[in-house]
């Protein structure tokens, strides 16, 4: 989809089976928007040359290369989230009595937590190294902010 006209109730889109396809228009009575977000690696200077991630197969494969095909020197390594710049669109919503939708400083820290625990195990078991070679970082006060305060303490 390229253009959404919310008042005209139309969407303009381009079929993507072959390059060069023409613009098409559809009108709708109902519309479900489920387009996800733009994961902005393209805004991190130096990411293409020096960064790694696990968001897709391409990057997963790229990370395997130094680890499994040679070249990895055993760290130090760092794992973390860039800052998320949340908008004001959930202001005033109260999902639980007295609650709210918080302002998050990291969009999704599950993968950071998981990469950290897996990397720690990898260093210990496979790379003859140590989890102490890892620095994990977060823009939040605490890395598992969304897991709840008691869970953070318990972990």
């Amino acid at each position: 989809m390229l253009v959404l006209g919310v008042d005209a109730k139309t969407v303009a889109f381009r079929p993507t089976e072959r390059p060069g396809e023409e613009l098409q228009k559809l009108s709708y009575d109902y519309l479900v928007l489920a387009m996800g977000a733009h994961l902005a690696y393209d805004r991190i200077e130096g990411f293409a040359a020096h960064g790694h991630t696990v968001s897709d197969l391409f990057h997963g494969q790229r990370l395997r290369e130094p680890l499994f095909e040679g070249g990895y020197k055993g760290g130090p390594d760092t794992i973390g989230s860039a800052r998320f710049h949340q908008g004001d669109g959930a202001e005033g919503l109260q999902p639980y009595p007295g609650g709210s939708i918080p302002y998050a400083k990291a969009a999704c820290e599950g993968p950071v937590r998981e990469m950290t625990t897996v990397m720690a195990s990898y260093l210990k078991m496979e790379a003859n190294s140590s989890p102490s070679r890892i620095t994990v970082f977060t823009p939040e006060e605490s890395i598992a902010a969304d897991a709840g305060e008691n869970n953070i303490k318990a972990s």
Binding site: L4, A37, H38, A40, T53, P76, H85, G87, D88, G89
Partner: peptide, 30 residues
Amino acid sequence: IEAELKLVLPDWIAHDCLRDLPIADSAGFI
């Protein structure tokens, strides 16, 4: 932070075709 491997999750931003809609918030999310 000094590091050999830099494993990073990025900022999540709104798609260009949504960000300026009247139903979008200050960061382009709906």
